[in-house]
């Protein structure tokens, strides 16, 4: 699905990502973990087109998508959520999801603005799908409420529904569990499984180890912008290098 090849990015002399290589397989949950400041979100931002890597390539299904702008990356089939929630807070919850479907709706400006028949039909389907997605994340009863009025955990769920709206090939979740309570985390766990069943591949950055260990098929560990380890949850939890990166070097 996604192949990251020797990705390197400097910020004014600071090496943010250094020769990162990783591969996201179809229909699997890949998790990206590492200590704070390891460069996880920076990798996300390079995939999503927010930053342009200095060196290295990113391929989506063999197609080079390095250096595309964010909206072009979305058009290629990659959507994302944010570590710090970025909702369209003045719009209703369902409108947020409909904006997520932007790339899939009627494209002709005049047909769209003057509500032609084909536009109304595509709109009807879009609403149906948006309601389904809101049901998936358990927020359908808030469909008409302004997104900004929801509780923090719920706002995260709206972001997830919005990211899933265009039926992307790959969805990037940046710390989806942050700010969620235990029940919401369990729901999230189940939800990610259902997203995989829907045919979308998941790449997530997450600090909550119990969630990662439960949900991930493959885990990549990075530290100080470099690849540290790769493996199944079991392998990773027993890897001495990973334990050292997380717990620190024992110096006696």
């Amino acid at each position: 699905m996604l192949k990251i090849d020797h990705l390197t990015l400097h910020f004014e002399g600071l090496v943010a990502t250094d020769d990162i290589c990783m591969e996201v397989e179809d229909h699997k949950v890949t998790a990206l973990i590492g200590p704070n400041g390891a460069g996880k979100t920076t990798i996300f931002n390079q995939i999503a087109g927010v930053y342009k890597p200095d060196e290295g390539k990113i391929y989506l299904d063999g197609e080079d998508i390095t250096g595309l702008r964010p909206f072009e990356v979305c058009q290629k089939g990659i959507t994302r959520t944010y570590q710090v929630i970025k909702l369209f807070s003045g719009m209703s919850v369902i409108d947020n999801v409909l904006v997520g479907m932007h790339t899939k709706l009627e494209r002709n400006f005049w047909q769209d603005v003057f509500h032609s028949r084909s536009m109304r039909e595509s709109e009807k389907e879009a609403f149906k799908k948006a309601h389904e997605l809101l049901e998936l994340v358990g927020l359908d009863q808030y469909a008409d409420h302004p997104a900004g009025s929801l509780a923090y955990g719920q706002q995260r769920l709206v972001e997830i529904a919005r990211a899933l709206a265009p039926s992307p090939k790959l969805v990037l979740f940046d710390e989806p569990a942050a700010g969620m309570n235990l029940k919401e985390k369990n729901d999230l766990n189940e939800m990610i499984r259902r997203i995989i069943d829907m045919g979308t591949t998941v790449l997530l950055v997450e600090h909550d180890m119990s969630l990662v260990m439960n949900v991930a098929d493959i885990i990549y560990v990075i530290n100080s912008g470099q690849n540290l380890a790769k493996g199944s949850p079991k392998e990773i939890s027993e890897d001495p290098a990973v334990i050292e990166a997380y717990l620190g070097r024992g110096e006696i």
Partner: peptide, 23 residues
């Protein structure tokens, strides 16, 4: 209440998120 109009409103609320929605 069209794709175009919603996209315009989206850019008001978050330029970044609008971009990541393909706008």
């Amino acid at each position: 209440h069209s794709r175009t109009g919603r996209a315009c409103v989206a850019t008001r609320d978050s330029v970044d998120a609008a971009g990541s929605c393909g706008i």
